[in-house]
Each structure stands twice: as C-alpha cells, then as structure tokens.
C-alpha cells in the first residue's frame, strides 16, 4: 500500500502529533490507591516478562478513541494489562470472571471488595 502523509487512510487515532487541538488543561489530580496498584501490576508483570510495554501500548491503541475519551488513564491500563495477561496465558477469561464475581460479592465499596486492604 502506498499513501501520502496528506491522505489519512490507515492513520490511527492515537497517532495524534500535529493535529489541531484546543487549549491545554493543566488541572492535575493525585492518584487513588487502586490506580497506583494498576501501575504497580504493570511494572511487576512486565519486569517478570509476562508481557511487554509494547504489548500494553498495542492494546491501548486497539481500544480506540472512544476509550481514550471516555475512560480514565488507569481504567484503560487495567483493561490492557488484563488483556495482555490473558494472551500470555497467565489466567483465563473464566478464571478472571469467577474472581471478579467473588470480589463484587464482598461489598459495595472498593475497600470492602478489596477486603479492607
């Protein structure tokens, strides 16, 4: 396939360098414990070669622009980490589903579902 960089066929949503965009919003927020845990799981699982940062990026990209606009940063990360771990055979979708149901049954708040931990 040939293309010119002026035609956009094949351009992916995350590849946004040079696009027109609005004013930069400089509001900042601190990360919640669950978000820090997502970050830690990424660092640990990639250091132990269960997947690569490249794989993390691939799935984030494949999630598409709607996910970028509607999900928070670490929501997208846990989705991608989970996908990569399943691709790597660390656990199966059914194992994850059973565990998520077990977690949700513990209580309505994060603290309860995480056993106060």
């Amino acid at each position: 396939m040939t293309n010119s960089a002026t035609a956009d066929a094949g351009r992916r949503w995350h590849d946004m360098g040079g696009d027109p965009a609005g004013q930069i919003n400089r509001d900042e927020h601190d990360y919640a414990l669950w978000e820090k845990r997502v970050d830690a799981l990424m660092v640990i699982a990639s250091k132990k070669k269960h997947f690569t940062v490249d794989g993390l990026r691939r799935v984030l990209e494949d999630m598409g622009p709607e996910a970028f606009e509607t999900m928070t940063y670490y929501e997208r990360w846990i989705h991608s980490i989970t996908q990569n771990l399943m691709e790597g055979g660390v656990f199966t979708p059914a194992e994850l589903g059973d565990k998520m149901a077990e977690v949700a049954a513990r209580g309505a708040s994060y603290g309860e579902a995480s056993l106060g931990d």
Partner: peptide, 30 residues
C-alpha cells in the same frame, strides 16, 4: 478507617484490578 479513596462505590475497573491482583498473587507471579 478506610482510606478516603476506598469508600466510593466499586467500579467495574476497580473490580478488575482487585481480581487481577489477587490472581497474580494466587498464581505466584507476585
């Protein structure tokens, strides 16, 4: 007491984080 950010209603992605974390511990990954 729970940390402040622990008290919100459990979201789907938080549920996933807890589940993945526990599975990784159970399977000896971490």
């Amino acid at each position: 007491p729970y940390r402040e950010d622990q008290d919100g209603p459990l979201s789907y992605h938080q549920q996933m984080e807890i589940a993945v974390r526990e599975l990784l511990v159970e399977k000896g990954v971490t």
